[in-house]
C-alpha cells in the first residue's frame, strides 16, 4: 500500500520534471519545425479517417437515442438544437480526445519506448541532436495543435450524422436543420469546447511522450509504456473535462 503511494508520488514528481523540461526546451532556440510538420501529418492527418467515422456515428446515434424522450414531451422540433449543443459542447470533444488517447497515445508510447530500448535515442544524441527537442517537443506540439483540429472536423461531421438521424424517422429540410443548429449554438458553446481540447491534446502528448521516453526493461517495458500512456491519458481527459466544466460554470458560459 505505502509502496504504491510512494511510487505514485515519485511518478508525479518525474512527470512534473518532464513537464518543466518540455517548456525549457520549447522556448530554447533551434526549433525542429520540419519534424513537427511531419508529426502533424502522422498524428493528425492519419487519425482523420477514424475521427470522422466515429464523429458521424456519434451524431447519428445520439439523435436516434434522444428522439423518443423528446417525443414524450412533445418537443421533437427541438431535436436539432438539443443534439447540436450536447455534441459540440461535450460529447464530440471528449470522445475524440479518447480516440486520440488510444490511437496517438499508444503510438507515441510504443514508438519512443522502442527507440529508447534499442538505443536509437542515444544514437540521436551522439549524432548531435537534442533527442528531447527532436522527439518530445515536436510530438507534444503536434498533438496539442492537431487534437483541436480533429475535434472541429468531428463536430462538423457529427452534425451531418445528426441530420441523417433526424431524417430517419421524421422529415426536416436541410435548411431548417442547419438554421436550428446555428440558432442553438453560441460562441459560449463553441469556444470553451475547443479551448479545452488544446489541453486534452497537450496532456495526451506529454503523458505519452513521458511514458515512451522513460521506458525501461526492454521490449516488455515498451508494451507497458504504450498501455500506461493510453490509460493515464484517457483518465486525464476526464479529469480535465471536469475542471473545464467547473471553469465554464464559474465564467457563466453554460
Amino acid at each position: 500500500m505505502w509502496e504504491n503511494i510512494k511510487n505514485i508520488v515519485i511518478e508525479t514528481g518525474e512527470i512534473t520534471r518532464f513537464f518543466i523540461r518540455f517548456f525549457g526546451e520549447f522556448f530554447r532556440r533551434g526549433y525542429e519545425f520540419k519534424e513537427m510538420l511531419r508529426q502533424c501529418f502522422f498524428l493528425g492527418y492519419k487519425s482523420l479517417g477514424l475521427v470522422v467515422i466515429t464523429g458521424f456515428i456519434i451524431g447519428l446515434v445520439i439523435t436516434i437515442q434522444s428522439r423518443p424522450t423528446l417525443i414524450k414531451f412533445g418537443a421533437e422540433a427541438w431535436l436539432p438544437g438539443m443534439i447540436s449543443v450536447s455534441l459540440v459542447r461535450e460529447i464530440v470533444p471528449v470522445i475524440t480526445a479518447l480516440i486520440c488517447a488510444g490511437k496517438i497515445g499508444s503510438g507515441i508510447g510504443a514508438e519512443l519506448g522502442s527507440m529508447k530500448v534499442t538505443e536509437q535515442i542515444d544514437a540521436m544524441e551522439v549524432s548531435g541532436t537534442n533527442p528531447f527537442k527532436y522527439l518530445v517537443v515536436t510530438r507534444v506540439s503536434a498533438v496539442t495543435f492537431m487534437v483541436p483540429l480533429l475535434v472541429v472536423f468531428a463536430d462538423a461531421i457529427s452534425l451531418y450524422g445528426g441530420y441523417l438521424g433526424v431524417n430517419l424517422r421524421g422529415a426536416i429540410s436541410w435548411d431548417l436543420y442547419w438554421t436550428q443548429v446555428m440558432e442553438a449554438l453560441s460562441f459560449g458553446d463553441i469556444i470553451p469546447s475547443i479551448a479545452k481540447t488544446f489541453f486534452f491534446g497537450f496532456t495526451i502528448g506529454i503523458i505519452s511522450c513521458y511514458k515512451g521516453y522513460t521506458t525501461q526493461h526492454g521490449t516488455e517495458g515498451v508494451g507497458r509504456s504504450a498501455n500506461a500512456a493510453v490509460v493515464i491519458s484517457s483518465l486525464m481527459v476526464f479529469i480535465l473535462d471536469l475542471v473545464a466544466v467547473q471553469i465554464t460554470d464559474l465564467l457563466q458560459l453554460i
Binding site: T118, Q120, A123
Partner: peptide, 11 residues
C-alpha cells in the same frame, strides 16, 4: 559509435 543494437532509426 557503433551501438550493440545498431540503433538504426526504424522510421
Amino acid at each position: 559509435f557503433l551501438f550493440q543494437s545498431n540503433a538504426l532509426y526504424d522510421s
